[in-house]
Amino acid sequence: MTAIVETRALTKRYGRRTALADCTLTVPAGRVVGLVGPNGAGKSTLLQLACGLLTPTSGTVEVFGRPPAADSAQLGRVGFVAQDTPTYAALTIADHLRLGAKLNPHWDAALADRRIRRLGLDPSQRAGRLSGGQRAQLALTLAIAKRPELLLLDEPVAALDPLARRAFLQSLMEFVAESESEATVVLSSHLVSDLERVCDHLIVLADSRVRADGEIDDLLATHFRLTTARRDPDTLPAGMRVIHAEHTERQSTFVVRADAAVDDPSWAMEPLGLEDLVLAHLETAADLRPALEPQR
């Protein structure tokens, strides 16, 4: 599996505020990768570092084995849909497409026109008068018609109503299907249900650390909720890694990672939904935080 994006100890600071600290991860080729984590986990910073909008304070980030935005060829291979999908309010849709055509070497004008027509948008309309969903679709069209090998999307649906969100994801999945696994997509969101639908790979990021990373099906197959009479997590069999533990007076509830469910009369072990799986990792990260971060 070749890595499309590879970061090593990637760190970004703004003055004294650290947005991303010591982040090491790889994005495998040909996948739709969901990047999930709480607000402030550094998702947006990570994506902007990967597309070269930001430069790292320390550590490295490589895209296709080279620094991001190194030259125009590199820029042409990466599509980026920024948060809140900015467009030029004063320019029309046609102007935006012309802009894309003039600035990108592999621009697919037919694809762009087809998409705009199918979305029912009037090319002579100014982008400033589009709805949030339409603007997002325009931004996606601009990014897709570049024929990128890597498409980065920073919370593209966060501000959209459910209908527009679904339409956006449909467009995105159409692109993925048409690219036939040639393209890699990284999509950040905190809506796990959306990610479960459209992604096949998930990276859970909290406090700049990768908490979980893998194919969604594998993650689902190896995470379980184990409910039992109150007991010490250390007494669980080897091969079970406790992600998260909660105790009441009598009961213990663990989220564990194991190769398969183990039947035992003393507990109930059931598969975990993706949302709960992500939450378990994030809660663990939140529990650990005071210990990791020395008081200033």
Binding site: Q48, C51, G52, L53, A69, S72, A73, L75, G76, V78, G79, F80, A82, Q83, D84, P86, T87, Y88, L99, G100, L103, N104, P105, H106, A139, L142, A143, K146
Partner: peptide, 10 residues
């Protein structure tokens, strides 16, 4: 925020 659009063209 349009710098994030324009600086990602080729």
């Amino acid at each position: 925020g349009t710098h994030r659009l324009i600086w990602n063209q080729g």
